[in-house]
Design a protein around this nucleic acid. Structure first.
Lengths: 226, 226
DNA sequence: GTCGGCCGTTCCGTATACAGATTGGTCGAA
DNA sequence: TTCGACCAATCTGTATACGGAACGGCCGAC
């Protein structure tokens, strides 16, 4: 086994969380192929820890759907086929569309104003090509819509789903003029929200997410990851 | 139930899962009030186990949203206010509506036939007043729609959400003629599915779920649980 | 009298130890 | 040769031990 990917998990946060993140990356990047059996002891010595935090990390990954735990029979990496990833993105698109529709009808003027501010601020990031800045504003835009549903549980679910797909979306914006297109689509969504047309906001958000997923899908197809 | 002193949890499955179930019941039933601090050692001796399975159970409850874990600061029972439960039911209603819409467009004739069979079979359960039988068929009806989306991830999410609310829905069907009404609503949903009108199916499913939630909400308000 | 720092206790996060279950292989019998 | 049972190795599930961080109380200073 080629240990090219050094564990290298230094930091101050919880050890189990660091192991979880490391394993998440390893699975999302394809270093750990689908169906691979994960031995707790082996992982423990690989990451320089004991079995206890490794177990906690694996449990978290199981609830995230990245691994599968058969009681007393070990842990295996879940089969993240292109179809499954596509399924996940479809669910995300629908959830985001749902949030957009609800938020359109429920946001306060103050919240709508903040959404517009975020959109305005993102213009500069697009012009300067600041990917990290746009990523933050992009995230803030979507999270503002989550919060705009005035349904805390909905917002949590949407955010959790977004986090879950973050590993696969990492390189999405790096391609072509996806950033500019992304912001344009945000503008169209925002217009529908401003007009109070929830259905249109939902449709445009769904299309927005599916286009982003398609861009990522092409990337995955090229690299053969998964 | 005499859960006054020692909740005896006997069985052959995993100890951590049994503790998780016991804690889930305790929280859903209100035995553990919102905001209660949960001490691992105390829970361990209470359930006659060590801290390890207790920890695993608490982690599972955290991902289920029933408790909140602050690193190095302990675990507290999440605040399941009526508002929060209402939020959860709204999300469930929207997800179910989404599944109904997608399933309408994607189910095969065979799957549609099975859905109709399930609906037909439930008639007998309604007539005889067999609550358990109707509960199974009701569950099967909804799960058939999940599967009908042909999106495995969507089906898993919907099922997980349903499981998560099961603790609060336990007594829902026991009230009045909710069973008969429930089956009638299923019939209306089924009609929309058969006609291929996904939007109507979604609307009717949303209304169906919200009516069930309202019935439960009245029950909760009466008993003061939560 | 009130505020701030010090210290002890408690509890969490992690490490290690032990027991039961599962899996794979090997040996023997038909 | 093939099938079945037994056995050993290994890994998971659980228990226990240890170190450090956080919270509460006490004492001293202003």
């Amino acid at each position: 086994m080629d240990n090219q990917s050094a564990p290298e998990i230094g930091g101050r946060e919880l050890l189990s969380d660091r192991i979880r993140d490391a394993l998440t990356d390893a699975i999302a990047s394809g270093d750990l192929a689908a169906g691979t059996a994960l031995d707790e002891q082996h992982l423990a010595e690989r990451y320089g820890a004991s079995r206890t935090p490794v177990r906690e990390a694996l449990r978290q990954l199981a609830t995230a759907g990245l691994v599968e735990i058969r009681p007393r029979r070990g842990v295996v990496v879940a089969r993240l086929t292109p179809e499954r990833i596509a399924d996940m993105f479809e669910v995300t698109a629908e959830i985001e569309a749902l949030c957009a529709r609800l938020a359109t009808h429920r946001m306060t003027p103050l919240e709508r104003g903040r959404l517009m501010d975020l959109h305005e601020a993102s213009a500069a990031a697009v012009e300067t090509g600041d990917l990290d800045a746009y990523d933050r504003l992009n995230r803030a835009f979507h999270e503002a819509l989550y919060a705009g549903t005035h349904n805390a549980f909905m917002a949590e679910q949407a955010l959790a789903l977004r986090e879950r797909l973050a590993a696969f979306r990492r390189t999405q914006l790096r391609h072509g003029d996806r950033i500019r297109r992304s912001r344009e689509e945000h503008g169209e969504i925002l217009a529908a929200v401003a007009e109070g047309d929830g259905e249109a906001a939902a449709r445009r958000m769904r299309a927005h997410m599916l286009r982003a997923a398609a861009a990522l899908g092409r990337y995955i197809a090229e690299t053969g990851a998964g």
